[in-house]
Amino acid sequence: MNIGLDMMGGDYAPLEAVKGVHQYLSASAQPATLFCIGDEQQVQPLLIEHNIPANTIRLIHAPEVIGYHEHPTKALKEKQQSSIAIGFHLLASGKIDAFLSAGNTGAMLVGTMYTIKAIEGVLRPTISTIVPKLNGATGLLLDVGLNADCKPEQLNQFAVLGSLYAQYVLGVDSPKVGLLNVGEEEGKGNLLAQSTYPLLKENATINFVGNVEGRDVFKDKADVMVCDGFTGNVVLKMAESFYDIAVNRQLDNDEYLHRFHYENYGGTPVLGVAKPVIIGHGISNAAAFKNMILVAEKMLQTNFCGIIKHAFMQAV
Rank of each mutant, 00 (worst) to 15 (best):
K237D: 02
F88V: 01
P14N: 10
I278Q: 07
E120M: 03
M238G: 08
A274R: 15
P14T: 10
L271E: 11
F88W: 07
I245M: 09
H69D: 11
G282F: 00
G229L: 09
T302I: 03
V234D: 05
N55K: 14
G87I: 01
M1T: 09
K117L: 00
V209L: 03
L140C: 07
G106F: 04
N233C: 04
L46S: 03
G232K: 12
D143P: 15
I3L: 04
Q81V: 00
F208P: 01
E263G: 10
F312I: 10
K74R: 15
L142F: 04
D223F: 05
K74H: 10
K188D: 08
K117T: 01
G232L: 03
D252N: 15
I86T: 04
N291R: 13
E153F: 00
L141H: 09
Y165F: 13
F312D: 11
I48L: 02
F99G: 03
A166F: 06
P72M: 15
G94Q: 04
D143Y: 13
T129Q: 09
V209I: 10
A75R: 14
I57M: 03
L90Q: 03
G266R: 07
K298H: 03
V226W: 09
L199S: 05
E120W: 00
A107L: 06
T129P: 07
T73W: 03
T112P: 00
A159G: 15
Y165Q: 04
R124K: 15
K298T: 06
G20K: 08
Y165H: 08
G306P: 07
L179C: 06
F218E: 00
K95V: 14
A166N: 12
K237M: 06
K151M: 04
Q194Y: 08
